[in-house]
Each structure stands twice: as structure tokens, then as C-alpha cells.
Amino acid sequence: MSYPATPPAPPTDGSTDGTTQEPFALRLPAHQVSPRAVGYWRLRAFITAGVVAIGFGIAWALWTDRPWWFTLLAVVLVLLDVAYALVMPSVRFRVHRWEVTDDAVHTRAGWISIDERIAPLSRVQTVDSSQGLMQRGFGLRSLTVTTASAAGPISIECLDAGLAQQLVADLTAITSRTTDDAT
């Protein structure tokens, strides 16, 4: 696999009878998404802020006898949208992580509510890659791994396009060697 090397697993205490082993500490997935994801997320957030501002501007222009609180609400919401667009992408970049090993796919996403998913490769049913128009402009792709889980697919957003294509090929090769039916 040509993506960054995976750090070693946490050490165990070396016991063989299983009675004195300490609980396994789950480490963070090893890799971050593409640094270009920050610009992509920021542009999407500013587009959303612009749509909100235009919506309030239209309502402000059409509502001639509007109360004073409407203008205050509009200004506060637009300022909050702009602050979100400035702060969120950098924070999101630091917390979104992923890792693919020979045994599993591990993701961690979310900056307010954190979602951590691990799926054994023996449970993988499909591997999909997608690239929207804005992602294409930033050279990014997203990867979706569908498993036999009720929790739904695992997604890795905003990978470098070449890396995402390599991951699809690697995961397809690894999972095709599995003789189970992934259910």
C-alpha cells in the first residue's frame, strides 16, 4: 500500500494466560484528510453563509414594517455563519482521521459530536469513491466503504484524489481475497 505508514499498535503487557492483560487502549487513526480539505470546507461554509445573508436580505427588503429585532437577528445569524466558516474548517481538519490496515478500516470524524467507526475488512461489501464538482476543483475525492453493519457505511471525506483511487484499488484487492460472504 502506498499511503503513509501505519504506526505500531499499542504495546501489551506480554501475559499469555489472558488473566492480567490491561484493557486495550484504542488509538487515533493514523492519517489526516488532505490539507486542501480546509479550503474546500471553508468555501462550502461561506457559500452557506452567503445564501443565509441573501435570504435575510430579501426578507429585509420585502418586509417594510419589520420589527427592530428582525434586523438584529439577521446580523447576528450572518455573523455567526461567517465565524463558523472561519473556524470550523481548521478544527475539522485536526479531528477528521482515517486508517486502513490489512485487517480493518478505522475512521474518526466530527468536531462537536465525534463518530468513530472500525470495520473489519472481512465485513466489507462495496468500496465506492465519489467526487463532486467542488471537490474536483480542489483535487479531492471521498471514499465510502459499505459493510454488513446496521450502522451504515463508513465514509472518508476529502482525500487526495489519487490516494482515494489507490485506496479503492487496495481495498478491492484485499477484500477480494476474503472467502467469506461479508454478512
Rank of each mutant, 00 (worst) to 15 (best):
S2L: 13
S2C: 06
Y3K: 02
P8R: 02
D13Q: 02
G14L: 12
G14C: 04
D17F: 05
Q21K: 13
P23E: 06
P23H: 13
L28V: 14
L28I: 07
Y40L: 14
W41T: 01
R44F: 01
A45G: 00
I47T: 08
V51G: 15
V52M: 15
A53Y: 03
G57H: 04
R66M: 14
R66K: 14
W69T: 12
T71H: 11
L77F: 15
L77S: 14
D81A: 15
D81T: 10
D81G: 15
V82W: 09
A83W: 06
A83M: 08
Y84G: 05
Y84T: 05
S90Q: 11
V91A: 14
R92W: 04
F93V: 00
F93S: 04
F93K: 02
V95F: 00
T101K: 04
D102V: 11
A104C: 11
A104K: 12
V105W: 05
H106K: 07
T107W: 00
R108M: 00
S113W: 08
I114P: 02
D115T: 11
A119E: 07
Q125R: 10
Q125V: 13
S130D: 10
M134R: 07
G137M: 14
S142V: 02
V145S: 04
V145E: 07
P153Q: 10
I154W: 02
S155K: 11
I156H: 02
E157G: 07
E157K: 04
C158D: 01
L163K: 06
L163D: 11
A164I: 08
L167K: 08
V168I: 15
V168D: 01
A169Y: 03
A169C: 13
L171Y: 10
T172M: 09
I174N: 09
S176V: 04
R177P: 01
T178P: 06
D180I: 10
D181F: 11
